[in-house]
Design a binder for these strands. Structure first.
Lengths: 252, 252
DNA sequence: CGAGTGTTTGATAATGTTCAAGAAGCGTGG
DNA sequence: CCACGCTTCTTGAACATTATCAAACACTCG
């Protein structure tokens, strides 16, 4: 779990565009913000899968914007069992908290190679209490918190089958929100063990439940690509509430 | 689930003392704060078990301080299954959030008759970013968030036995923190169904797991009173980390 | 091709649920 | 004080779900 830093990036320009589009849905940035965002993006970094981005207990002094790849927030029990608390997808921010001097409540680990940018301007915006970046940060945090509640309900009161479907729909709508779907498909860029540790299941059972969904023609999968075939039926199965749409750019 | 309001209170003075002691652990209040707290406490209300204090989706515009009784934060699935997300104990605050215009992410329901006071000064303090009340509010929110992560780990990766023990220890240390223990004992003032809905178990299994703990002489119970007999052993069973002590009054 | 990792399969066991019924506790009204 | 009705707790038996173990298979990469 050591950090491998690469100073080169695969594809700078697309990721810059990706990041810019994220924020502008909440309105225009100020020129100063624009500069800070661009400076931050210019310093983006890529690390390999397994890198620990935040250690549980560490001070959260600088938020990171995930640009590419997936990460998880997790806790590990003393006997080695792992529970993944939430997934971090491209466009999500890590280590952003309203409280100053807040401390990470679980560790954050890259499950693929990930590219991210350190974005102090998001922490500033959160404290400024106004502007597009503020609204974006606010919503990002609220969404993460809502995700935690969803996770509690999944784990506490849903069957393996329901949990899996709910988690897949969560991925689907989050990726759609940042325009990373390909049709109704997306990649799960990690092993079934990761998924199992998020759903509180054994890998064997996760595997069998996935097979059941395939047999029932509710999903298709080719390698890591998942295709959700019958969204209304899937949502019904697990009592999933699709998130309301992100508001279009507001006039300032 | 209708709200029954009583304008009379059982025991005003002890509850005022209880509330005052809560805050002073974080330093002296300003005279203005003191007045606001006292005004709020003078207007405390009591409602019966079953009253919904916050509805999921409602605007969180005024925090409530729970003075007596227990409440839960819960979500209900469309088929009626309920998951309790967290417990609210005396001394906890409800509906306090750093974000302005935040919305309740689950509903809050009294599981006993509860007495609470509406405390706008806590929301003010949180925005003021300094002072004893600010530090108290900050910590209250951080503690609640930590509790959510604990809940995810319990539900996702612990057995029924471990979950139950972990939850009991959580109650123990939280009640100890507000000086509501009687020796090593405390009351669980609700049915086993409530406990089951928090732990993600059937009531039958919760019942049997409690019996097992009694047989193993790890707990004793008389009615709703629970006595934890072997704290170190209990903590070991469920990998429980006792919270660090609340800091003693700070010099300003 | 061979090693390593991840996925799939089968058999078996453990864990937890459901259903149904009886016992115990508790408040209410006679 | 007792009888009644209600809720909660407890018990047993059958069942369902999920975990564990072990092995086979598949895929990727050097």
């Amino acid at each position: 779990m050591t950090a491998h830093l690469h100073s080169h990036h695969r594809s700078l320009a697309p990721l810059r565009d990706f990041a810019s589009k994220l924020f502008t849905a909440h309105g225009a940035l100020t020129p100063a913000e624009e500069i800070q965002v661009n400076t931050s993006l210019a310093a983006m970094e890529t690390v390999t899968a397994g890198t620990e981005l935040f250690v549980e207990g560490q001070l959260l002094n600088c938020p990171l914007l995930l640009l590419e790849g997936w990460a998880v927030r997790q806790r590990v029990l003393s006997d080695g069992r792992r529970q993944i608390v939430s997934f971090i997808l491209p466009g999500d921010v890590m280590g952003l908290c309203e409280r100053t001097d807040a401390v990470a409540l679980c560790s954050t680990v890259a499950v693929t190679d990930v590219t991210f940018a350190s974005m102090p301007v998001l922490a500033d915006a959160l404290r400024a209490k106004s502007g597009a970046l503020y609204r974006w940060s606010r919503e990002a945090i609220a969404t993460q918190e809502r995700g935690l509640y969803d996770q509690v309900v999944r784990l506490g009161r849903q069957s393996a089958y329901e949990r899996l479907v709910h988690q897949l729909l969560d991925f689907y709508y989050r990726l759609r929100g940042v325009d990373l779907l390909e049709g109704h498909s997306f990649a799960l860029p990690f092993t079934q063990e990761v998924l199992s540790d998020a759903l509180g299941l054994s890998t064997v059972h996760t595997n069998r439940t996935l097979q059941q969904l395939r047999r029932e023609h509710l999903i298709e999968s080719h390698g890591q690509i998942i295709h959700l075939i019958n969204l209304p039926r899937l949502a019904e199965i697990c009592d999933y509430q699709p998130p309301r749409q992100v508001r279009k750019p507001l006039a300032l």
